[in-house]
């Protein structure tokens, strides 16, 4: 089971779009995919038409379970329109976790431990992280083997990236491991000079860590979300989907190396 976290401490950079589109493409490859929404705003859950406030269980129940086992996780899953794609939805109650467990030892490892129980059930787990550093993002990052950092190709987003990368450095030190980080330039508009400049700065500053493609601005992502369907199904020939397919190919090739 491969576990990827999609993280950035800045909001609106394309985390949910990246999670959903890669998840859709993987499911279309026939892979068994679990998408975990760890953002209290539950954008990923809403994307699939899941109103998590109406659900009796969510990923919150995994975090607060007295004792973890497979059922705790599996009972929370929601199916999607793709039959090999499942969602572990978020709920606003997640926002309370930082207060209740933010200073308790080991509370950053709950997801990592929970996923051990379902490792035979899925080929890929993709976790959509909240745009704040806290117990939820730490859990996702600690559980994953690869971190995807979508970055909007504009200068404010680059500043947010500095913070994100530094956070990861500290966590690497704490966990005594190296994270496999791929920075993904998103919402790239080749007609805008500022986007081209920001992309160049990204390449200069982070070099090898930056994926060598870009995810273009594409309104089909918005259309797909309105239809509550991954863009890879909704608009398989969209240029944005094509770019994500290329990214996925790169990630899968790197994983098998």
């Amino acid at each position: 089971m491969k576990i990827w976290a999609i993280a950035n401490q800045k909001g609106g950079v394309g985390k949910t779009t990246t999670t959903v589109t890669l998840g859709g493409l993987l499911a279309q490859q026939g892979k068994r995919v679990l998408l975990i929404d760890t953002d209290p705003h539950a954008s990923l859950s809403y994307y699939f038409g899941i109103d998590s406030e109406q659900l009796s269980v969510s990923v919150y129940d995994v975090f607060v379970a007295d004792k973890l086992n497979a059922d705790v996780v599996l009972d929370c899953l929601c199916p999607s329109r793709l039959d090999s794609l499942f969602i572990l939805p978020a709920t606003m109650a997640l926002a309370t976790l930082d207060r209740s467990m933010g200073m308790q030892n080991g509370k950053g490892l709950i997801l990592k431990n929970a996923l051990k129980f379902v490792q035979q059930e899925f080929d890929y787990v993709l976790m959509d992280c909240p745009p704040v550093l806290g117990v939820l993002m730490v859990n996702a990052v600690a559980a994953c083997e690869r971190i995807l950092v979508p970055v909007q190709t504009e200068f404010l987003a680059l500043k947010g990236l500095d913070r994100m990368m530094h956070t990861l450095e500290i966590m690497e030190k704490t966990q005594k491991r190296r994270f496999d980080v791929t920075i993904i330039p998103t919402m790239f508009d080749k007609r805008v000079n500022a986007a081209i400049d920001a992309h160049n700065v990204l390449l200069e500053q982070y070099g090898q860590q930056v994926w060598d493609g870009v995810i273009p601005v594409d309104t089909r992502f918005r259309d797909a979300s309105q239809a509550q369907t991954p863009a890879s199904v909704y608009s398989p020939r969209a240029r944005g989907v094509y770019a994500y397919a290329k990214l996925l190919k790169t990630l899968q090739q790197e994983t098998t190396k």
């Binding site: 004792k67 497979a70 080991g106 490892l109 730490v138 600690a142 956070t167 966590m171």
Partner: peptide
């Protein structure tokens, strides 16, 4: 920040069930 992250990521004793996956 380091203290915060170290605390969250403290492995501690293993207390999880090892039941097979349902």
């Amino acid at each position: 920040m380091e203290d915060y992250l170290s605390s969250l990521l403290d492995e501690g004793p293993e207390t999880l069930e090892k039941d097979p996956v349902a």
